[in-house]
Design a protein around this nucleic acid. Structure first.
Length: 480
DNA sequence: CTAGGGTTAG
């Protein structure tokens, strides 16, 4: 039998090269454009697939693609910050964009201080900040309201020569005016060579947020005189009205409303909502109602502003009937709506109604309750005396109970004199905050109201051992 | 090569 004659390829023949290409080397597939794929992600699942692609094709160190992934995880609504952090940690040399993205995410997250620490880390590694770093960093300074941080960041801005950038300047103004240095902000504003509408807006809002509505009004008039453009006016008005709502400047709000009428600025959803919110927050409920009814375009934020305004001013029943109307008109509520409605139930003590609404959130509307909603429910059940149910609800949560939610339950225990549950709650709070002595005081008040004097004395000894100072909260204990 | 301010809750 003749063995098949091996085909001999000289190293120089075309055939050899061809064989090398087709068999010896892995089949060459055009590499997918990972950064383009990353841009098209709409969910974390898709993003993880793209990330997996990156790993298997040994391109985890493609910084550009990684940046896009990071930006989705960190900033998108359906993103996942912890996943973003993992991508970041697995990157060999994160570029400036990646640092900025993380700083931005942390600045708008629940713990804005982290943005500042991130910046320090970035500087320690010698990465140079750019004009996109500071606006985000300054945002976290504004929410922390720490003058110390503001000044430190300001020196960094000067060091890197970015003090003439309008966005950076605007961030500086905002954080100074929120950290109690409004007058310093004004000085900077007066000497700055360039101004735009957002800088003006920041300054006017700064006065409004610092309860100086007269000066806000003067500046507002000046702004209108110097550069008024109807299109740019909408964001300005909206932020100023929001500042009025937060700080209770009803007069300034009214004047802006009058100004809008005078200039014939169209009342769109955004300005309409801002006005309804401003009137409702300031307790001008009838004004808010008439405005709400006259708006021909409403969105869910408008309804929320009205419902929450009613709830916070003790018109719980009206808030609930407005919610029924919303359901009748087939408007889709969101999670904020339910915070308002549940807190309305709290104010009027409608336990059964609150229970039903809480159930309907997920079943009817497919909205997953957040910790705020659980907080409202625990508050409601606790006030209504359903303490065991409230405790069960806390256990069912996927998050660890925080001090706020446990405090709500403790308040319920006090109202209904339940020592057993109160003891358990206090124990849990002390795990979270070992130095929170106030809970001892509350607990001893609960014991005192139940007439359990020996427990009061026992607790008093505990407090003495822990060297707790006397506070006004002791009053009932002192009656022993 | 990518990115920065407008309405609603806590």
């Amino acid at each position: 039998m003749l063995a098949p004659k091996p085909v001999f390829f000289n190293k120089c023949t075309i055939g050899y090269l061809y064989r090398l290409r087709t068999y010896a080397s892995p089949p060459p597939r055009p590499p997918p454009q990972l950064s383009l794929l990353a841009d098209k992600c709409t969910s974390m699942d898709q993003l993880k697939q793209v990330h997996a692609q990156m790993v298997v094709s040994a391109r985890v160190h493609d910084n550009f693609a990684a940046s896009r992934l990071l930006s989705f995880c960190a900033l998108s609504e359906c993103g996942d910050l912890s996943y973003a952090l993992r991508i970041f940690q697995s990157t060999r040399e994160p570029n400036g964009f990646m640092w900025n993205t993380l700083i931005r995410a942390q600045a708008s997250g629940p713990n804005p201080c982290k943005a500042i620490f991130l910046y320090m880390k970035m500087r320690r590694l010698g990465v140079v900040p750019g004009k996109h770093t500071f606006p985000f960093l300054l945002k976290s300074c504004s929410s922390v309201r720490s003058l110390k941080f503001c000044r430190q960041v300001h020196t960094q801005v000067l060091k890197f020569g970015l003090d003439l950038d309008l966005h950076v300047f605007n961030g500086l103004l905002k954080s100074y005016s929120l950290s109690g240095c409004l007058d310093d902000a004004r000085c900077m504003f007066d000497v700055f060579p360039e101004r735009n509408l957002s800088v003006w807006t920041t300054m006017v809002c700064g006065y409004a947020q610092n309860f100086r509505s007269d000066e806000a009004l003067v500046l507002f008039d000046q702004m209108v005189a110097e550069e008024y453009e109807p299109n740019g006016a909408i964001p300005t008005m909206a932020s100023v009205l929001s500042a009025c709502a937060q700080s209770g400047c009803l007069e300034l709000g009214k004047k802006i409303h009058a100004f809008m009428k005078e200039k014939g600025i169209e009342m769109g959803v955004i300005l309409g909502t801002a006005l309804v919110n401003m009137y409702a927050k300031n307790g001008a409920i009838s004004m808010a109602w008439s405005l709400f009814d006259s708006l021909h375009e409403k969105n869910i934020a408008t309804w929320n502003a009205m419902i929450c305004g009613l709830a916070t001013h003790g018109h719980g029943e009206e808030a609930l009937s407005l919610f029924r109307k919303l359901q009748k008109e087939h408007v889709m509520p969101n999670d904020i709506t339910f915070v308002g409605v549940l807190s309305a139930c709290c104010h009027v003590g409608f336990v059964e109604c609150g229970r039903e609404i809480f159930q309907s959130m997920e079943r009817v509307y497919g909205i997953e309750p957040k910790i705020e909603h659980y907080g409202c429910m625990v508050d409601l059940l606790g006030k209504g005396g359903e303490l065991l149910e409230a405790e069960e609800l806390i256990k069912k949560m996927v998050w660890k109970a925080d001090v706020v939610i446990l405090g709500a339950l403790l308040a319920g225990c006090r109202k209904h004199g339940s020592c057993e549950i109160a003891e358990r709650v206090v124990k849990e709070i002390l795990v979270l905050e070992p130095h929170n002595h106030m809970v001892h005081v509350v607990l001893s008040n609960i014991y005192a109201e139940a007439g359990r004097w020996d427990d009061v004395l026992r607790l008093r000894k505990v407090m003495k051992r822990r060297n707790v100072k006397r506070t006004p909260g002791w009053s009932i204990v002192d009656d022993v």
